[in-house]
C-alpha cells in the first residue's frame, strides 16, 4: 500500500511575543519542528506500511530548511520525502497549499491513502486535508480516530462527529485527517535519525510541478491576511457589584464582549 503523509514544519514553541523595541512579531525563536498533530498521521502511515509491506512518502510545502522536518520523518520510518519549495509558494493560503500538494501527489502518481494531521498549531485552520481531497478528486473523511479495516479497495474507520462517532467505509484512493486518539506515536531510533540526516530529499519547484506561479503564493491565494493584531485581553481583576441577578447579568455581557462564550 502506498501511503502519503502531508506534514508541516512549525515553530517549536508557539508562544508569540512582540519585540518591545521594534514591535515586530517574534514567533518563538528559530527552533522548528514537525507540527505535533501531524505526528499522528505519520505514525499511522508507518503502521500501515509495516502491516502491508508498503511505502510511506512524506510531503511538505515550505522553505528550503523544511527539509529537516522531512529528514526527521524519515527517521521515524518514512521511506521517501519530497520538499515542495519555490519562492512562488510563499504566502500561500490553505487553498494554494492544497493545490501544490495535489499537483505533487499527481506527479507521484500511484497512491492509496493520503494522511494529514487534524490541523496545524500555528495557522489552526484544519482546511488543507479536506481541500486536498477535493483538489485530487478523491473521497475524503475527516477526524478519523481509528482504522478498523484496511483492504485493497476500501478502508473502514471511525471518525469523531459532533455527537459521537461514526463508522465509515471509504473507497481507495482517498484522503483522511486523523486526530490524536488514533495512536501513540513511536519514539524514533537513533540509527534511524542519524541515517535520515544523510537522506537525499527530492525538491520540486513550481515548474517541475507544472504550476503557474500566478495561481499560488500570495497572488494566487483566494484569501489574504489584511491585518494581524493582538487580541484585546479581558480587563484584569474586575469585581462585579450588585445583587446576584445583576452580577450574573454583567458577567454574561462581559463574556460576550470578550467572546469567551
Amino acid at each position: 500500500m502506498n501511503v502519503i503523509v502531508c506534514i508541516k514544519q512549525v515553530p517549536a514553541k508557539i508562544k508569540i511575543e512582540i519585540d518591545p523595541k521594534t514591535s515586530a512579531l517574534a514567533s518563538g525563536g528559530v527552533d522548528r519542528a514537525i507540527n505535533p498533530p501531524d505526528l499522528y498521521a505519520l505514525e499511522e502511515g508507518i503502521r500501515i506500511k509495516e502491516k502491508t509491506k508498503g511505502k510511506v512518502t512524506v510531503l511538505t510545502v515550505g522553505p528550503a530548511k523544511a527539509d529537516e522536518s522531512l529528514k526527521e520523518a524519515i527517521g521515524y520510518g518514512a521511506d521517501d520525502a519530497v520538499l515542495l519549495s519555490d519562492p512562488a509558494f510563499e504566502g500561500s493560503d490553505t487553498w494554494a497549499t492544497s493545490l501544490v500538494l495535489a499537483k505533487a501527489i499527481r506527479k507521484i502518481g500511484q497512491f492509496d491513502l493520503v494522511l494529514c494531521g487534524k490541523q496545524s498549531i500555528d495557522g489552526e485552520t484544519g482546511q488543507v486535508g479536506p481541500m486536498l481531497g477535493e483538489a485530487l478528486g478523491v473521497p475524503f473523511v475527516s477526524l478519523v480516530n481509528r482504522i478498523d479495516e484496511l483492504g485493497q479497495e476500501s478502508i473502514k474507520m471511525m471518525r469523531m462527529s459532533d455527537e459521537g462517532h461514526q463508522l465509515i467505509e471509504m473507497t481507495l484512493p482517498g484522503v483522511i485527517t486523523v486526530v490524536k486518539e488514533i495512536n501513540v506515536p513511536r519514539i524514533p531510533s537513533l540509527r534511524g535519525l542519524m541515517a535520515a540526516k544523510k537522506a537525499a530529499i527530492t525538491v520540486w519547484n513550481a515548474r517541475e510541478l507544472g504550476i503557474d506561479p500566478a495561481t499560488v503564493g500570495m497572488a494566487g491565494s483566494p484569501t489574504r491576511v489584511s491585518r494581524v493584531f493582538f487580541p484585546q485581553r479581558a480587563s484584569q481583576g474586575e469585581m462585579l457589584q450588585g445583587d446576584p441577578e445583576s452580577q450574573v447579568e454583567q458577567l454574561v455581557e462581559r463574556l460576550r464582549q470578550t467572546r469567551a462564550i
Binding site: 490553505t94 487553498w95 482546511q127 473523511v141 467572546r259
Partner: peptide, 25 residues
C-alpha cells in the same frame, strides 16, 4: 465543527475559492 472539517472546505475548492475558518467576528 464537523461541517468545517470536511464539507465547507471541499465545497470551497470545487467553487475555486478559499475558506476563512473558525472566525470570531
Amino acid at each position: 465543527g464537523s461541517l468545517s472539517s470536511s464539507v465547507i472546505p471541499r465545497m470551497a475548492v470545487a467553487l475555486d475559492t478559499g475558506v476563512s475558518p473558525n472566525c470570531i467576528s
